[in-house]
Simulated scan of single mutants.
Amino acid sequence: MDNDKERSLIAYNHITYLLNIVSYFTAGLLWIAPIVMNYVRRHEADGTWLATHFDWQIKTFWYSIFFFVIGMILLFISFGGLGISAVMDSGHLAAGSLLFAFLGVAVIGVTVVWHLYRIIRGWIALASNRPVP
């Protein structure tokens, strides 16, 4: 890979990392843009240290989506259980539903922190011209 191509891909990755961070301030609306961008140009970095950054961001996106959905499912289950417990006047069902709500919020919270960690760690590695593991 020539120097101009490498600089171009480095700048491109800086943009995708930035969009990942900015997506937190747009209620996730920009979250899809960096993943599409990574898929579009990832083949250009094959066999280079930059390929690790494309793969890193793609894996971060998909694992984050997976665990976020799990957290949301847990929350939906808890809301349903709370509704049923209110109708049936069941304290035990309400307690179980609150546990599901706590687990859902915890999974989503850990996912957000993990996502931010991966984006920041990858961006620092990119700024140092190093691959990510």
Rank of each mutant, 00 (worst) to 15 (best):
F61L: 09
Y63C: 01
W56T: 05
L74P: 02
S64R: 05
F102Y: 13
L74Q: 05
F54V: 04
Y63I: 13
F68Y: 12
F102E: 09
G80H: 03
F79M: 08
F61R: 04
G96F: 13
I58P: 04
S78K: 06
V87S: 10
I70S: 05
T60D: 10
T52E: 12
I73M: 11
V105H: 00
F54W: 05
T60C: 14
D55H: 12
L93E: 11
A101T: 12
H92E: 15
D89Y: 03
V87I: 15
L98R: 00
I77M: 13
L99D: 03
A101C: 06
H53G: 08
H53L: 11
D89V: 07
G80F: 07
I58C: 07
G83Q: 07
T52Y: 08
G91E: 14
A101S: 11
A86V: 00
M88N: 11
A95R: 01
Y63P: 02
F67V: 05
T60I: 02
F61G: 03
I65Y: 04
M72L: 10
F68N: 10
L74S: 10
A94C: 00
G91V: 06
G71N: 03
L98V: 09
L98E: 05
A51P: 02
I58M: 13
F76M: 10
G91I: 06
M72K: 08
H92A: 14
M72F: 07
I70Y: 01
L74F: 12
A94V: 04
H92Q: 12
I58A: 07
T52F: 04
A94T: 03
T60K: 00
L93P: 05
G71S: 03
W62L: 09
S64T: 15
T60A: 14
V69T: 13
S97R: 07
S85T: 08
L75N: 09
L74K: 06
F54K: 08
K59A: 10
K59V: 03
W56Q: 08
H53A: 13
K59E: 09
S90G: 02
